[in-house]
Amino acid sequence: MKVGLPKGLLYYRYHPFFKTFFEELGAELITSEDTNKKVMDAGIRCCTSEACLPIKIFHGHVDALKNQCDLMVVPRIMKVSNNEYICPHLCSLPEMVVHSMDHLPPVTYQSLYFNSQKQLFHWAKDVGKLITPKRSAIEIAFNHALDRQANYKRTIDQSQYSYKILLVGHDYNLYDKYVNMNIIRKLNDLNLGVISSDSIGNGILNKYIKKLPRKPFWYYYRQAYGSAAFLIEKGEIDGIIFISCFSCGIDAVITEAIKDDMSSLPLLLVKLDEHSGDAGLDTRLEAFSDMLARSNTHHKKRRI
């Protein structure tokens, strides 16, 4: 059986889990290629126009795979941490995809709770059944997938540059180079090193989250607030850049909250959409780097 895994949304976070699980079950896993113009155009064509760019791009990846596989993985990710919510679009992803596209192979409708191993196994059991009747094989594949996921760390921490920036954003905005116009390379070219908001461990985040008057509602607020508060206290960063996609309701709340919380450091909000000309992004990044460099001639530099 051929299983299609679209390279969009939280693929960037959970691909080791999905890959290991399906391959251990003996399925042939097909992943779409990196996001490109063709994928984006296909996504925009079939997706509802109100959705954000990453959702549209996910549709494009599904489109690229739909004639090559017998089962399409459309992860309905409900939660990734206890008592916190992720994104309503991610919770309704299978319905969005099925109702906006034709000629699809069967898709996975089951819910994924990455905060609970027990609930996550329900997903594995139900989806695994479509590939093999052997419950033991599903359990083994599931456990291997969990291990592989636990050992997987994809974070960015560059210290060889004269300034360091905390790059805040959802996984798919941080790691999809097409969507973010290769922002990390652009920052490096301006001599700015990057730490990504997902590189700070949960233990540290928990400690700093306690400073908030109430627990975060959105998972990404925990990540943004916790990483920024920790790195500012350590004196590790010179500024914060927040990458967000146009029309993201969650980021509309988080960016405002972070702006208020972290007013001691320069913060730049980068909004991404279908624009392919990067002159606007270049201008903002260059001005941000100039601001840091020019203020540095008057203030003492904090690091080597």
Partner: peptide, 12 residues
């Protein structure tokens, strides 16, 4: 004090 400390531009 003659140094840019913050700026913002319209988004999309």
């Amino acid at each position: 004090d003659g140094i840019v400390t913050d700026f913002a531009m319209n988004t999309v």
